[in-house]
Design a protein around this nucleic acid. Structure first.
Length: 309
DNA sequence: AATACGGGGAT
DNA sequence: ATCCCAGTATT
């Protein structure tokens, strides 16, 4: 962190915590202490916005109330319950993590950061989030919001150098307030200090922010200087991701035990599908199978596909 | 360090 | 049309 007067840091901490007390979003995973529920929310929130998670999260917990329930459920049910979320691999990772918790840790989420990090689908961010939000530990979490907010406040419009972030986040953490502080940073990032169009006029820390002046001067517009993406985002329709999603979505719609043959599946997901596309389809399916998202039976031309048992 | 992985909402 | 999102795993 750049040389920052302790007084400034304290001011920022107090202002943001006070703001959070008044303006925090009411989110379902903030009113539970159940580590399992918190974990479900954290995995769902990986690259998926709050508004889209809430209804799926509530239904998911109703259907799979505990680690044990999730671990024992048919994978097909879990994949169906994940509908609308995207990144379907997360559903399988979450179920494998649940199995690991029941088998290795007697159904209790481990409190050790390293053990958490060893669960499938739990990376650096989620391990810290679980430690703080599910287990009450005083650790800083670093997600895209925290990264942006801290970067702007303490460095400026361009944000913080990548390698300094962990250090900054750790130093900024107020004693005994990790839960509120982390939640507050994410709320501010999601609602005020947004990526495209920060509304500094509504920000509780604008008077101590290294970026607010520049943003206010340009009427809230973020400078182009952050530059366009290095690599062009591939277009979604027609991509492998697109067809993977369509395959899984079609299989979700089948009755339990019902399977789908290759020509039918190909035609459903790709309107202009021809028999010559079968190698392409098989390749696509192989990837899905490797991710545990589908099951294939049979040989050669009589292959059928279903959600996994 | 790059790339794959979903899909809907915001601009 | 492009960017963005409470990231992770693989290459």
């Amino acid at each position: 962190m750049p040389d920052l007067p302790t007084k400034t840091l304290t001011t920022v901490q107090d202002a943001l915590l006070a703001w959070f007390k008044e303006e925090s979003r009411a989110l379902p995973w903030r009113t539970t202490r159940d580590p399992y529920a918190i974990m479900v929310s954290e995995v769902m929130l990986q690259q998926t916005q709050v508004d889209r998670v809430i209804p799926v999260y509530l239904a998911f917990l109703k259907q799979f109330p505990t680690f044990h329930n999730l671990a024992d459920a048919p994978a097909a049910d879990v994949i169906r319950a994940w509908a609308g979320m995207g990144y379907n691999r997360r559903a399988m990772n979450l179920q494998r993590a649940a199995a690991q918790v029941t088998e290795l840790y007697e159904g209790v989420l481990p409190s050790d950061l390293k053990a958490l990090r060893g669960l499938p689908g739990v990376g650096e961010y989620t391990a810290a989030a679980l430690a703080c939000f599910a287990l009450g530990q005083e650790v800083a979490v670093i997600d895209t919001n925290v990264c942006r907010v801290l970067g702007r406040v303490f460095y400026g419009p361009e944000g913080a150098p990548e390698k300094e972030l962990a250090n900054v986040a750790a130093q900024a953490l107020p004693d005994g307030e990790a839960w509120s502080w982390n939640q507050a940073l994410m709320d501010l990032g999601a609602t005020v200090c947004t990526s495209r169009r920060p509304t500094c006029l509504l920000c509780p820390v604008r008077s101590d922010c290294q970026a607010a002046g520049a943003f206010l001067a340009t009427n809230g517009a973020v400078a182009e200087s952050r530059g366009p993406y290095k690599t062009k985002p591939e277009k979604f329709e027609g991509s492998s991701r697109y067809y993977r999603g369509r395959v899984v979505d079609h299989l979700r719609g089948l009755a339990v035990g019902e399977s789908c043959d290759l020509p039918t599946l190909g035609t459903v997901v790709k309107p202009d599908y021809i028999s010559g596309d079968q190698p392409w389809l098989l390749d696509l399916l192989q990837g899905l199978q490797r991710d545990g998202l589908i099951a294939m039976r049979g040989e050669g031309s009589i292959v059928t596909v279903t959600l996994p048992l």
